[in-house]
């Protein structure tokens, strides 16, 4: 058993747990977008940041991957943490204006407008990569990946063409935190010849 503190509350965790797992067990809320129990964490969305403090020393880490350790002092809602979350959400508002989920999440943290210009009003994908990880780790199909680098990055099948690797299981649609995969599934599996959902 590892003992430490989250927001002043004493908590206990199993060796090998992360801070986020412990917080969830105690019902302490930490927001996440790219985290899902079904797959390994990747640390992409950075929304689950928490601050560690020890005397004058302080550091911001992501709770979904930070391993628990004896005597940690974790703060889930400090000014530094709020500043990171606020800016991520404000940037996501401009980046994914078509996502209702992002709008609601941002509003929960007091972000209702964005100072940034909107480049694509139809965008709803935050490129968290959950779809890619579930396809690889759970389904084992490896039908999709992130394509390109940095600002040019997108989610797609090889060569951005529908491929036969997709088994149309819909796992990617299920785990997608913004519903963006719904629109993209046909681009991965190809358009069904017969309309099934009737």
């Amino acid at each position: 058993m590892v003992e430490f503190e989250i927001d002043g509350q004493k908590v206990q965790a199993q060796e090998g747990w992360t801070v986020l797992e412990t917080a969830r067990k105690y019902g302490i809320h930490i927001p996440t977008l790219c985290y899902h129990e079904a797959v390994k964490p990747s640390g992409a969305c950075r929304l689950c940041v928490v601050e560690l403090r020890e005397g004058d020393w302080s550091k911001v880490v992501i709770s979904c991957m930070y391993p628990v350790a004896e005597g940690l002092k974790v703060f889930t809602d400090s000014e530094r943490v709020k500043n990171v979350r606020r800016w991520i959400l404000e940037m996501l508002l401009a980046e994914c204006p078509a996502s209702e989920e992002i709008r609601q999440l941002a509003a929960q943290y007091g972000v209702t407008s964005t100072r940034f210009a909107i480049h694509d009003p139809d965008q709803d994908c935050i490129l968290c990569g959950l779809c890619v990880r579930v396809c690889a780790e759970v389904v084992g199909a490896n039908a999709i990946s992130t394509v390109g680098r940095g600002v040019h990055k997108q989610i797609g099948a090889p060569y951005l063409e529908p491929g036969s690797d997709c088994v149309a299981c819909g796992s990617c649609v299920t785990v997608c935190p913004t519903g963006a995969m719904r629109r993209r599934l046909d681009a991965v599996r190809g358009k069904p010849k017969v309309e099934l959902a009737r």
Binding site: G43, I88, L92, E95, G150
Partner: peptide, 8 residues
């Protein structure tokens, strides 16, 4: 492009 703070 993996993490949001850097990419955006």
């Amino acid at each position: 492009g993996k993490c949001i703070p850097c990419r955006l």
